[in-house]
Each structure stands twice: as C-alpha cells, then as structure tokens.
Simulated assay, not measured.
Amino acid sequence: MKNDPSALSSFAPTRRQLLGLGLAFAGATAFNVMPGFQLLASAQAAVPPAAQKIADHFSSVKSMSGEFVQFGPKGEQTGGKFFLERPGKIRFNYDGASNFRVISDGKSVAILNKRLNTSDLYPLSKTPLKLLLDDRIDLSGDRVKSVKQEDDLTTIQLADKTVFGNSKITMMFDPKSYELRQWTITDAQGKDTTVMIFNVKEGVSFAADTFAIDYTANRELNTKTR
C-alpha cells in the first residue's frame, strides 16, 4: 500500500466511531447510493469482470496486517494497527491512552475499552464486517449495489438487508494491483466512517491468541455493571 496519511490527532474514538468499523446496525432510513456510482439492477447477475477479479483476488488473501487511519462522520481522526485473518477474524489496536480494541474471532465482535473497563459484544453475522471478512467476497444476487471504475480506483458497494439492514459497505481497490485501499461503512442514519489502510503485509502469521475474545471476562464485567 502506498497510502501515507498525515499526522493524526490524539482523540479517543467514541463508541459510534468504533461501530463504524463495521458494526453499524439497521435503522429506518432509506437506502441512499453515493453520487457517481453506476447502479446495478437488484436481480442483475452480470457483475463487471474487473470487479469480480478484484473480489476474487482479495478473497485469496488469507491474512494481512498493517496500519490504519479512521475518519469519523465529523472528520475526526484516529489510527493504529490492524490484523486480519480470513475467514471472519480481524483486530484493531487503537493508538492512545484509551487502549481501545476491536476484535472479531469469526463469531463475535468485541469492543474493549480498558481505560473505562467496558466490553461490548455483537454477532459478526449482523455487521457489514462480515462481507469484508468472508472466505469469499460474494458479488452474487443483489448484494452489489454499485460499481465505479476509474483509472486509479475501482469502488464496489455492497449491502445485504437480511444481514445488517440499511447499512452498507463501500470498498475501494487499486485496479492494477487489486489491493484494498480503504472501506467506508455507512450506517442506517447515513453517517460514514472510513478506514484507510497502509503499510500492509500479506500472508502473515499471527499468535494463537491474536483474535481471542475472553467471553467469561465479558460476561462477568457486564454482570457487575448492571
């Protein structure tokens, strides 16, 4: 990845901004397609060949790590390091004293704030992260809402109301290398959170506990705080 972000502010991400990584849930607002995208008919089976090649390549990357910058709905910035292992596993270690962690173990997604001693748990299957982390990026059926092909960028927008309601995920790839550059989660209220990744390494190995979620600790912590 060639992306090189400018210096980050030191703010700690809010819960909404953390959810923007892929935990945006269904709401009542209508589906809005981003300007400049080519709409695809809901039943259309013919996905552009370039988009399918990109999806197949990204699916073939079984592990990767690197750094990320997150931009919130109001332009807030934070960052840190990420680790991904297909299928279903990802971890974000945020910079800063708040020591935020977002971890998916393939079944659940945990949001940890060690400074506040909180732990929130969500099913991965009900988040847009599921489409990013699936063993195969599925462009079949009506999941593909739009595709935009440019000389330096191919953008694919996916949504699945049966999984996460009115939220959607927009992924941006290098059309030549097929590398993922960034993604944007748009929640049910139309608020965008963008994650840009850089200094990415593919085919990496991780320690066994990298994507582990301590369910016992989560249960005990939330029992005490009720």
Rank of each mutant, 00 (worst) to 15 (best):
F58I: 10
S10L: 08
S10I: 05
V61I: 15
V69K: 08
L129W: 00
A7C: 00
T118N: 09
A188M: 08
R16S: 14
G36C: 14
I90M: 00
A41V: 11
G203L: 03
L112T: 05
I137F: 02
D192M: 03
N117I: 14
V33R: 13
G72A: 11
N117V: 13
F92Y: 14
G80N: 00
I156L: 12
A55S: 05
L131K: 08
N99E: 09
G88W: 02
I111F: 10
K89F: 13
G36D: 12
R101M: 03
G80I: 02
D174I: 05
K107V: 09
Y94G: 00
V144K: 10
T186F: 10
T194Q: 06
R16H: 13
M1Q: 07
Q189T: 13
A45C: 13
M172I: 03
Q149K: 13
A188W: 04
L19W: 06
V163L: 12
V109K: 02
M196R: 02
L133R: 02
F206W: 03
G165S: 07
D138A: 08
F58L: 12
A188T: 08
F92C: 07
R136N: 08
D4I: 14
D135H: 12
G106V: 04
K53Q: 11
D138R: 07
Q149I: 15
A110L: 05
K74E: 15
A55G: 11
P123G: 05
V144S: 06
I111G: 01
T186H: 08
P49H: 09
D135P: 09
D209H: 01
R181L: 13
K168A: 04
K62A: 09
I213F: 01
Q157A: 11
S140G: 15
T184E: 10
L121I: 14
D105N: 05
V147E: 11
Q17E: 10
R181M: 14
N113F: 03
T29L: 11
V147H: 12
A45N: 13
T186K: 09
G190I: 08
V61E: 08
L153S: 06
W183I: 04
I169N: 06
L129T: 00
P35N: 10
P13H: 06
L19Y: 08
L21R: 07
V33Y: 14
T29F: 11
V109M: 04
G66D: 04
R143G: 02
K145Y: 07
T210P: 06
K224E: 09
Q38N: 09
P175I: 04
S146W: 04
S146E: 10
K81E: 06
N166I: 07
N99K: 09
V204D: 11
